[in-house]
Amino acid sequence: MSNVLANLKYTASHEWMLLNADGSVTVGITDHAQEALGDLVFVELPEVGAHFDAEKEIAVVESVKAAADVYAPISGTVTEVNQAAVDAPESVNQDAYAAWLFKMTPDNVADLDKMLDAAAYQAVADAA
């Protein structure tokens, strides 16, 4: 079964978020998402500095099987992208919580409180 970490926030579209001490939010796709997609072979990440509204397409991950959009979990501005995930997409399969995709500064950090907690996301993943 796929792994859900207790210290993260989640979306129903299978992104995870970690609130950092500096107020930025690290975003990746969940273990459930990587397992459903299968072997990843391509990752496309947003431009640093670009602003995205919540639920807009922000990145793309592609496996041998299919392409999947990654959505901005909250509104905010991209501050950093993980080039290592672009260079080695399989790292997301190996550990989806270590291989983050991008960091963003939220417009409103309180938006994070509306996200799913681990138990709520587990229920989403189990139903998928």
């Binding site: 299968g38 072997d39 496996s63 041998v64 099987k65 399969n93």
Partner: peptide, 11 residues
């Protein structure tokens, strides 16, 4: 079955 773990390894 679409895969038993890794499609690339099966390939």
């Amino acid at each position: 079955p679409v895969n038993y773990g890794s499609q690339i390894e099966e390939h």
